[in-house]
Amino acid sequence: MSESVFQKVSEIIADSKNISADEITLETTFRELDIDSLAALSLVYDFEEAFNVSIPDEEVMKIRKVGDVVESLDQLNVAV
């Protein structure tokens, strides 16, 4: 799992939720962060923009925690 991808993902989530990135781990769930399905889609949009990739629908539907996002992005061989 890419540490640099995790860091960037954490920063994007932290920025959107107005919290510190230090509060976010790979195990942090979207539910814990009070991110509903629509807000999650907005974040996915932000991840896609930041990494210049397109995350497939089936991957997006599986996202429950921050680690899921990093895993999806790793599969797409994103560069940071």
Partner: peptide, 10 residues
């Protein structure tokens, strides 16, 4: 661009 913001529709 090839994607829209998910809040475009609402």
């Amino acid at each position: 661009r090839n994607r829209l913001h998910p809040l475009a529709i609402p």
